[in-house]
Computed example of a mutant assay.
Amino acid sequence: MSRAVRNSDLFLTKGAARTMDPDMIHSLRHKGNRIFLDPVDEDVSDDVAAAADVLVAASISAHREFESRPLATKVVRIDHHVDPRLRRLLAAGGATTEPTEPMLVRYFGETVNAVSTPQIAASVEFVHVDTARQDTAWMQRVPGVHMHYAVRQHRALDRHKPFLKGFTAALAGANILLARDETEAAFWLPDDYPYWIEAHPSEDAILAGLEYARETFRGEQWREALTMMRELSARTADSVIVSQLEDALS
């Protein structure tokens, strides 16, 4: 990062936040900059957080954890929004509102993060999203999907994962299959959402969840779930994110 930047609001997200130490942050602040530290889903030490002007939480769980720390640094929440390019694509072509047979289920993300077996892959199409490079090809495969698969492998480095898969599915007018060990998702979807499956699910539990989705496809439970997803989408609309950003900058 250029040390010549002056009198600006600087957002240090994930990779930049990971490489910062307190002295580097103080150097930037001494040039009249306000430092907004946004580790997204990674951890940040108290020393680094204390050096910033504002600590940004990209999820509800992160916000609660940051506020519990003995820090004088201001803590704000700016939810992880859906990629604006996908929002534009869906606005141009329309989201899935009237499902047609057969039910189409896809997973979008790093495939190493998903729970997958040959039996699960027979029902779920896995679309790899390479987050290490700019690639929007996967977005073309979002329209028309009825259910997003979001059963993840949990890793030790996972901290506060934003519910981005849920936000994406909701924007696209789709339902989502997910496990009850998704801490962040529980803040966004009610306990009676029909397509929760048990925490740390076995292959059999996942297959049973997919079968239940097929059995209820287009039925009353399906429509109720879509209503919940529309409510979720409203909570993460652009206007909401802009308001959070404005509050953070005030």
Rank of each mutant, 00 (worst) to 15 (best):
W188P: 02
R218D: 14
F163E: 00
L207N: 04
N175W: 02
I120W: 05
D181Q: 02
K161G: 07
S202F: 07
A121W: 07
P162S: 04
A150I: 07
V115F: 04
H146Q: 13
A185T: 07
I120R: 03
T168K: 10
N175V: 14
F187A: 08
W196H: 07
R159T: 15
G209K: 01
P190L: 00
E125Q: 09
E198M: 12
N175C: 12
T117G: 06
T216Y: 08
A205I: 12
T97H: 13
V145P: 04
H160R: 09
Q134S: 14
L207P: 10
V129L: 03
F108I: 03
Q140A: 12
S116E: 09
P162Y: 00
T216K: 14
Y107T: 03
Y195C: 10
V115P: 00
L104V: 15
P190I: 02
E215P: 03
M103Q: 08
T97F: 12
A205N: 03
G144I: 06
K161E: 05
F163K: 01
A213I: 02
W138T: 06
Q140K: 10
E125K: 04
P99M: 02
I206F: 04
L177C: 08
T168M: 13
Q119E: 14
F126I: 05
A185H: 03
A121Q: 15
H200W: 15
V115L: 09
H146R: 12
A169F: 09
P194K: 11
P201M: 00
V105Q: 01
A150W: 03
A121N: 12
L177Q: 05
Y193P: 02
Y107C: 11
E215N: 10
I176A: 08
G219L: 11
